[in-house]
Amino acid sequence: MALLTLLDAINQALDQKMSEDSRVVVYGEDAGYEGGVFRVTAGLQKKYGEDRVFDTPIAEAAITGSAIGMAINGLIPVAEIQFDGFVFPGYTEIVTHMARYRNRTRGGYGLPLVVRFPVGGGIRALEHHSESIETLLGHIPGLKVVIPSTPYDAKGLMISAIEDPDPVIFMEPKRIYRAGKQEVPEDMYRIPIGKAKVVKEGTDVTVVAWGAMIRETEKAMKQLEDQNISVELIDLRSINPIDEETIINSVKKTGRFIVVQEAVKSYGPGAELISLVNEKAFLYLEAAPARVTGFDITVPLTKGEMYHFVSPERIAHQIKRTVEF
């Protein structure tokens, strides 16, 4: 098996699906000729031609809107929005049409398409380039929203997303695009959308994270190595639908629950997950469910961003507090 970065793994998934299924098209701002700002789609235009891999104008509403049209007409578009913060001009199409086709046709047909974009900060970028918008998409009925944390998951989830009969928002944690490599099978494989993964089993506290926060939580766990705290780390992988079963079973076992999210605090995924735990595992709780999050501010620019983002120290601190509650 080849050692791939998360970015390479997405590229491979796109390549393999395009090779297998001529309906798959890939496009976005700079996604064609240049292979994307981060090189996720590198090499695809050369291989599959300008009809299937192409650049768009800087017009996100057109990108998301045309994906709907293509999907209705039999293609499987994989549309790229260049950055998280650029989703907003295309948001109307996503929320008011894309998400509603299955419902609008009374279940008749959905839109087999993927909207993918890099998310999150930590790369010393500029404004609109560092945002975590899980809530803004996970909140919308009719959208599936996934986010991988490893190269292996990235490939498996991307293949599942392309094969899904309904729209899938595929968020790529850009901070870990190239941070680390993992063995990724050459063959195509699928990771079911809506299934979380227990990264590490433990008995004292359940920590749910996703995307780039998995790595930060693992660093926190390393810091706590000599503290005799058994952490169960769950990679949510799918923002919507939420894998209730995995989370609730884990909390029933540990009695303690922490959510780590890069997104700002208020109304974030952490709030939803804690509500879920309160609804379904209330009688098992040994400690108040807690969340480690960004602050309720616009993501700071380069100089300040690391003060804003969740650090392994903050996660470790909360784990200790929750276990000692």
């Binding site: 590229n11 292979g35 930590g122 970028a125 998951d153 850009k174 695009y177 680390g180 063995e183 995995t246």
Partner: peptide
């Protein structure tokens, strides 16, 4: 450029490591 997989992005500073992660094993499910 149309190619350049080994080069990182043009926007922001991506962390690049060759650290190898443990392989995922979906079969040993929870």
């Amino acid at each position: 450029l149309s190619e350049g997989e080994n080069a990182p992005s043009v926007i922001g500073a991506l962390e690049v490591t060759s650290e190898v992660m443990a392989s995922s094993d979906e079969s040993s499910s929870h």
